[in-house]
Simulated scan of single mutants.
Amino acid sequence: MECHEDFISYLDSDTSLKILECLDDPADLVRVTCVSRSLRQSVIANGLCKQLCLRMFPQLSRVAFVVELNEQGGKQHAEVGSSNSMEWLVLQREHRVFSYLSKALMSSVAMNCIAKTIGASSTDNFPQESIDHTLEPRDVIGGRYSYWSSNGQSNPNVPETLTYELVSQICLITEINIRPFEAYFQLGSPIYSASSVRFKMGHPKASLDAVDDELFVWTYTSPEFPMSQENKLQTFKLPEPVLCIGGILQIELLGRVQRQEMDGLLYICVSHVQVLGGSLSPPFNVEILQPSGIFVLKRDQLASEEPKIVRDIRRLVTILQARGAGVLEWDQDDDDIYDSDPEYAL
């Protein structure tokens, strides 16, 4: 017990690396870097924080490189020196960025991440039945029913899409909630749901002047979820949380089940849509590199390194504004772990 030597120094590099790769909690990796200099160098040199983030969120595999912004808002440049020192500075920067990113991913607060609508594949009566109405949770506004309606079709297999812009270009999405519309004003109060739904996330290719698949690059497509013909907010939880890079989400409504008695055509109508998750901006942002679709991950140091009490108040305000949405787990002790490392000290 009187010996305080680092046991890692007695292991060969492959063995120590295999041990460290067994860690599956980002906070544990940060703890390891506080134990000894050799452990810290091993974690940074092997990019273990980046590897763990990639395992948790495969969408990060499209990161070309990372950039840190200093307090003046400019890019942080490496100092002049040997190629080895330059490489080490790059590894240190990646370690810092992905460490803070993993912390942000694990402590995100659940909120509705829709910023605005982009468009629908079709609309029966515009603007009375436009996609904009799906952002409103109330059934009736100003004495009028609030919902989106597709055009009528005789073929039940004709799909529809609703496309939204999220609150930032980098969001962690956990579930999408949809309430089909029940037409109380029609005989029998029919519910115009779809048979199933599927979700796509990605980024625009160019402008968003029109809704067309050619304008978007989809980097994630969910499994297909069955939809019930019920007038309630139906929850579609993703198999794993998804990092939406580019800030675009599209809902595919597949299969028509309800025929309108007036014209005999099949419609899909949606009353309300929620996209639950958390925004990572600030302090993180992305820059999509066209036409490759790879992106630059940017971290704003000034936003990352605000005083701890300010972070706590910001989280509390976000929780209070979440309109009853659940809160992802936040362990205050993990904040202390990051702050205890001189690399992360405020």
Score class of each variant (00 low, 15 high):
Val97Cys: 05
Tyr10Cys: 10
His203Val: 04
Glu165Asp: 06
Leu238Tyr: 02
Tyr267Lys: 08
Leu265Ser: 15
Phe126Trp: 14
Gly264Tyr: 05
Glu175Trp: 00
Lys308Thr: 03
Gly188Val: 01
Leu297Gln: 05
Asp300Met: 12
Val43Asp: 13
Ile294Tyr: 13
Pro26Thr: 12
Gly81Cys: 13
Gln301Cys: 13
Val211Asn: 15
Asn285Val: 02
Met111Tyr: 03
Arg138Ala: 15
Lys75Arg: 12
Cys171Asn: 13
Pro26Tyr: 10
Cys53Gln: 11
Asp209Cys: 12
Gly278Trp: 01
Thr318Asp: 11
Asp25Ile: 08
Val97Tyr: 02
His4Arg: 12
Ala27Val: 15
Lys18Pro: 00
Ser99Glu: 06
Ser292Val: 11
Leu297Met: 04
Gln186Ser: 01
Ser304Thr: 14
Leu17His: 03
Val211Tyr: 14
Phe295Arg: 12
Tyr145Phe: 10
Ser122Gln: 01
Thr318Arg: 14
Tyr220Ile: 01
Ala115Thr: 03
Gly247Lys: 05
Ala78Arg: 11
Ser102Asp: 02
Phe126Gly: 03
Leu238Ile: 04
Ile313Asp: 13
Leu48His: 07
Asp14Gly: 07
Leu20Cys: 05
Asn46Thr: 05
Val197Thr: 03
Gln290Tyr: 09
Glu230His: 13
Leu187Lys: 14
Ala322Met: 02
Gly81Ser: 15
Arg323Met: 14
Gly74Ile: 00
Gly188Asp: 10
Val310Arg: 09
Leu297Pro: 04
Ser108Trp: 06
Ser99Asp: 03
Asn151Met: 14
Thr235Glu: 15
Ser340Glu: 04
Lys237Gly: 00
Pro180Leu: 00
Phe65Ala: 00
Leu233Trp: 03
Pro223Lys: 07
Asn231Glu: 12
Leu166Val: 09
Val35Ala: 13
Val32Lys: 06
Tyr10Pro: 00
Leu89Thr: 12
Leu243Glu: 10
Lys298Gln: 15
Ser61Thr: 06
Met86Pro: 00
Ala27His: 11
Asp132Arg: 05
Arg96Glu: 08
Leu52His: 00
Ala183Cys: 06
Ile294Asn: 11
Ser271Glu: 10
Leu346Trp: 08
